[in-house]
Design a binder for these strands. Structure first.
Lengths: 243, 243
DNA sequence: ATGCCATGCTGACGCGCAAACAACAGGAAC
DNA sequence: GTTCCTGTTGTTTGCGCGTCAGCATGGCAT
């Protein structure tokens, strides 16, 4: 992704920030890379920004920030130049005894916003309108962005029906649910009614009772006594495929 | 999925990135595969990109990145893919089974090879209503289920505005786009109008002209001559977070 | 205010390499 | 035989990187 020069600059900036906490100015970078003009730096910076390695505020002195480092950062920082020796990094990491580790290396940046993912089980379908059946069992798994998942257990359901269309939840969508037994009014939840029907509805309180409200004028809000409804989770994410 | 040569190239690139962090140039690849010409490399690279194994910036030196590896290789390198018990609704935080490892190991950044998810770059925001600006730069990456991605290059955009609400696309959603320059009528596309405004709209034909149709009665369908609109990709997925 | 300095932004020029593309040919597979 | 993958040669276009020079702006001291 990066050319030699771009990487050189990026690592220099990164070093500088680690040591002094202050990003270097264009002039300092120019000197560090042994250039005679800041113009070259400007272009390198632009390239780095374009590739998503740094972020900056335009027209602000030293206003730049490293947001990710090249993958083989550790290895590259050794500047092998010729005849690379890929063993250096491996040594620092050790061999994983059992863990089947794909060819990946130690993540370079710590505070980096890295996009990892989590796998959650799809537990069946849920009726958004007329309930089909309660939650079944794990049919398969789906991978979701880790940012979508907070703490706690999660599962996924396929939405059947159209009662939540006005909330942007369509037939066929997959919803990600956090397993919880409580919710705040206004949140969309998986509600189990009378221990038999599970539905995806918006949660409201009506005095001591609970209102389950669809997001579709064709469906009525249903109100139950507090003992007839169990909250089985709340909506935290939605995934849809087209085609 | 891949021909022998394509796989050979892919693995070479992957090795190179692991070792030096800098992707090889066409010339270096040519030498590595023992070819006399870069043209062959060009075709192989194109094929790999089409199949979604690598991502690259056009016309940029060494601007390429491996985003997934062939299954054969992934399987071989993480041999005991056996007892992979995918986190029942229990520890949902699980990722890959990690054995006795030093305190919390994190997943490697992009180009990490997970059989079930793919990382795509978020290229900025797109106006669903009034266009904000054309597609900007890579802001960060997001992980999406592999099932959502077919072949070809993909990217993601954050949706701004409400012009597609009736299609279930809300302000703040993240849409996954397959990079393509053609689409079928009725599909939702990223359209670049007059080389300046990028919008997410439904694609229609009106004779020789192109109609860009919002999914919100408050917005009018706009019709352009065929030369004023460029298709920049089509919608293949949507991800939404609640809270 | 004036002027200087630090810092950042940009255009122009040049060299060399990288990438894109075109045209053509051999070989393996269906 | 047709098709696909592969390999070759060659041309064209564009980027990477170095250099110089000019300009804008905000802070600071006179």
């Amino acid at each position: 992704m990066l050319t030699r020069k771009q990487q050189e600059l990026l690592l220099f900036i990164h070093e500088r920030m680690k040591e002094s906490g202050i990003p270097p100015s264009f002039d300092e970078m120019k000197d560090a890379l042994d250039l005679a003009s800041k113009s070259g730096i400007h272009r390198l910076i632009t390239a780095l920004e374009e590739r998503g390695f740094i972020r900056r505020l335009p027209n602000r002195a030293r206003a730049l920030e490293v947001i990710k480092l090249p993958e083989a950062y550790a290895a590259a920082s050794q500047q092998p130049r010729r005849g690379f020796s890929p063993t250096i990094v491996e040594g620092s990491r050790g061999k994983q005894p059992v863990a089947p580790t794909p060819p990946q290396r130690v993540a370079a940046p710590q505070s980096d916003v890295m996009s990892s993912s989590v796998s959650v089980p799809v537990m069946g379908r849920i009726a958004a309108g007329v309930p089909i059946s309660a939650i079944q069992n794990n049919t398969h798994d789906i991978t979701v962005p880790a940012e979508m998942i907070g703490s706690g257990a999660h599962y996924a359901l396929e939405v059947k029906g159209d009662s939540m269309i006005e909330a942007g939840i369509f037939d066929g969508d997959t919803v990600i649910i956090r397993d919880t037994s409580s919710a705040n009014p206004g949140e969309i939840i998986v509600a189990l009614v009378d221990d038999e029907e599970a539905t995806l509805k918006r949660f409201r309180r009506k005095g001591a009772s609970i209102a389950l409200e669809a997001a579709n004028p064709a469906y009525e809000t249903r109100i139950f006594g507090p003992d007839r409804v169990k909250i089985q989770g709340k909506l935290v994410g939605l995934i849809r495929r087209y085609n």
